[in-house]
Computed example of a mutant assay.
Amino acid sequence: MSLLFLAAATALCAAPSVHDGDTIRCGAERIRIANIDAPELPDSPKCKDARRSYAWCDYEQGYKARDALQAFLSGHTVHIARLGTDRYGRTLARISVNGRDAGGYLVRAGLARWWN
Rank of each mutant, 00 (worst) to 15 (best):
K46T: 08
H76M: 00
G62A: 08
G99V: 00
D101G: 04
S53K: 09
A65G: 13
T77V: 14
V107R: 12
I31L: 00
I36F: 07
A38N: 07
K48P: 04
G89P: 04
A50S: 14
G75T: 05
G89T: 03
G99M: 00
L69H: 08
T23F: 10
C26F: 06
T77W: 04
E40T: 14
A112Y: 08
Y59V: 09
A28Q: 08
R66T: 10
P42A: 01
D58L: 01
Y105D: 00
S44N: 14
D67C: 13
A28I: 00
R32E: 07
L41S: 15
E60H: 12
A50W: 14
L106D: 07
A34W: 14
W114I: 12
D49Y: 05
R32C: 04
E29K: 14
R51S: 11
S96Q: 00
K48V: 02
P42N: 02
A65M: 12
D86P: 11
E29Q: 14
V78H: 03
A55S: 13
E29I: 10
Y88K: 05
D67R: 11
E29N: 12
Y105V: 00
G110P: 01
G104D: 09
C57H: 06
R87E: 04
A81T: 11
H79D: 09
L73D: 04
Y105W: 05
R90Q: 05
R52M: 09
G99K: 01
P45Y: 08
E29P: 03
L41E: 14
C47W: 00
D49P: 06
D101M: 04
K64A: 13
K46S: 13
D101W: 00
G99Q: 00
A34M: 06
D58T: 08
L69A: 13
R90M: 10
Y59D: 11
C57G: 10
R66P: 01
P39Q: 05
D37V: 07
R94P: 06
D58M: 00
I31W: 04
D58H: 01
R51C: 03
A112G: 01
T91P: 03
R94D: 10
V78T: 13
L73M: 07
